[in-house]
């Protein structure tokens, strides 16, 4: 039944579908012309312009900071929430529903409600003072935590409690058990939850544009506001650099996890 030729065609078509747009974006970042769709010769000038554009570089730096901080917070919150959801007592169903609600809520609503919350809080308790990096981090950690919880919970369900019981039998306290047994077993899920939250934060433009304040425009916000005048190849150059960076990170992550697996065996 299965013909290797048909299978290969499907594989090639699948990869094309996924990577052809990215490839064309990379190719056009080396385009001389200002028009994104007209090829007029090889040039590195857009990379030069990108590096001398303080607005974009500043926004990229802000985005990375926000993504790093919010992903870290989201992973910690997600771990705690997953722990309660898997091991907790009554009210788990309600908590589960509440934690995962941001997954299905439209971003506009999350953004607007957080904006109103921040304004109200500032009026009542004076914190957070104004909108800025902090409010974007809080907002991103909020919806990042929802995704992180789902990922970590899925892993935690499969953990064998007997291992933890054994550790306790051997005299380890609950904290020791958590840090020495539970956490290492969860590590792969923690890494993927962190990466997921990081990517989502880097991606978000709707929520950020509501809760951002003076001097805290993230990269997607800046790019999006430039779209009105058509995307300049500078954005292609930036995207290419991001793709290179992300590919390197993924390769390093794969290499590290491959090395770690060796002693286990």
């Amino acid at each position: 039944m299965r013909s290797p030729v048909a299978l290969r065609i499907v594989v090639v078509a699948g990869f094309l579908f996924l990577y052809a747009p990215i490839l064309s974006l990379v190719i056009y970042s080396f385009n001389e012309s200002r028009l994104v769709t007209v090829w007029s010769g090889f040039s590195l000038k857009w990379y030069g312009e990108l590096l001398s554009d303080p607005q974009i570089i500043g926004a990229a730096w802000i985005s990375l900071k926000v993504a790093f901080l919010s992903a870290s917070i989201a992973t910690v919150l997600g771990t705690l929430a997953a722990l309660v959801l898997v091991r907790g007592g009554r009210g788990r169903a309600v908590l589960g529903g509440l934690v995962t609600a941001p997954l299905v809520m439209p971003e506009v609503i999350i953004g607007l409600s957080l904006l109103l919350l921040f304004v109200a809080m500032e009026g009542l308790i004076g914190w957070p003072g104004g909108r800025g990096l902090l409010t974007i981090v809080i907002a991103h950690a909020t919806f990042g935590a929802a995704f992180a919880t789902v990922v970590i919970e899925a892993r935690m369900v499969t953990l064998d409690r007997a291992v933890e019981d054994a550790a306790q039998d051997l005299g380890a306290g609950p904290l020791r058990v958590f840090f020495d047994v539970t956490l290492p077993a969860l590590a792969p899920a923690l890494v993927s939850a962190w990466l997921l939250a990081f990517t989502l934060s880097l991606d978000d433009v709707v929520i950020a544009s509501f809760v951002a304040g003076p001097g805290s425009s993230t990269l997607p916000m800046v790019i999006f506001s430039k779209v009105r005048l058509g995307v300049s190849p500078e954005v292609n150059a930036l995207a290419t650099l991001v793709i290179v960076l992300v590919s390197c990170l993924v390769l390093i992550a794969a290499w590290v996890s491959a090395r770690q697996r060796v002693p286990e065996a």
């Binding site: 607007l112 904006l115 109103l116 304004v119 104004g130 909108r131 509501f210 304040g213 003076p214």
Partner: peptide, 9 residues
């Protein structure tokens, strides 16, 4: 939206 929410900074 931001202006009407107030304290935009």
């Amino acid at each position: 939206a931001k202006l009407l929410a107030g304290s935009t900074g």
